[in-house]
Simulated assay, not measured.
Amino acid sequence: MAIKFQVLPRKNPQDFNAPEKFYAAALGDGETDLDTLAEMIAYQCTVTKPDCYAVLMALEHNIVSELRQGRIVKLGSIGNFQVGISSLGMEFPQEVSANVITSNRIIFRPGKQLRELLKSITYRKAG
């Protein structure tokens, strides 16, 4: 299976007079929410306290599987995971193909509580 991408024109932020170039941008292909993940895990293992590790391993397996299919994985208030890509800029849309994709990454968008956590963290120099 492959991640879907779309072609987007973008201006050069360092030279707005330069002609636009075209880039590949990852597309989310549906969504997988926490309830769906919980249902998947229920079919794969038991969910008793002693089996918590097994449940976490199944969760990881399913997150990887859903991301591999191009889906956005929503973990409720924890946040969302999605695959992102970078590509070379091309002069024309028809020149953009999978061959110009230069890198990929996992994008995590934290939920509200995690974002709030970042606002309240304080720092202290070690030593």
Score class of each variant (00 low, 15 high):
Gly28Glu: 04
Val64Gln: 11
Ile85Arg: 07
Asn62Ser: 01
Glu95Phe: 00
His61Trp: 08
Ala2Cys: 04
Lys125Met: 10
Asn62Ala: 03
Ile72Glu: 07
Ala38Asp: 10
Leu118Gln: 13
Ala25Leu: 10
Leu27Arg: 11
Gly30Ala: 04
Val83Glu: 02
Ile101Trp: 06
Leu67Cys: 00
Thr46Ala: 12
Gly28Gln: 11
Val47His: 04
Pro93Ala: 02
Ile78Arg: 02
Gln94Thr: 08
Glu60Tyr: 07
Glu95Cys: 01
Leu59Thr: 11
Tyr43Phe: 14
Val96Pro: 03
Arg115Val: 12
Thr48Ile: 05
Ser87Phe: 08
Glu91Pro: 00
Ser65Pro: 00
Ile121Tyr: 02
Ala98Gly: 14
Ile101Ser: 01
Pro93Leu: 03
Asp33Glu: 05
Ile72Asp: 04
Asp15Asn: 15
Met57His: 08
Pro50Val: 04
Ala126Tyr: 09
Val83Tyr: 00
Arg105Phe: 10
Ser86Val: 09
Met90Ile: 03
Glu39Lys: 07
Asn104Trp: 14
Tyr53Asn: 09
Arg71Asn: 09
Gly28His: 03
Gln14Lys: 13
Phe108Asp: 07
Asn99Tyr: 09
Thr122Asn: 07
Thr48Met: 02
Gly70Leu: 03
Thr46Asp: 14
Lys4Ser: 14
Thr36His: 12
Leu67Ala: 10
Asp51Arg: 13
Glu60Gly: 11
Ile3Lys: 07
Ser103Val: 01
Lys21Asp: 07
Gln14Pro: 00
Ala38Gly: 11
Val100Pro: 00
Ser103Tyr: 02
Leu27Pro: 03
Leu117Cys: 11
Ser120Gln: 15
Gly76Thr: 09
Asp33Ser: 02
Gly30Arg: 05
Ile106Glu: 02
Phe108Asn: 06
Leu118Lys: 07
Leu8Met: 05
Glu20Gly: 01
Gly28Ala: 13
Pro110Cys: 01
Arg68Val: 02
Ala58Ile: 05
Phe108Glu: 03
Phe22Gln: 01
Leu118Gly: 13
Ile106Thr: 13
Thr36Trp: 06
Gly84Ile: 12
Gly89Ala: 02
Val100Thr: 11
Arg105Gln: 15
Gly70Trp: 02
Tyr123Ile: 10
Ile85Phe: 03
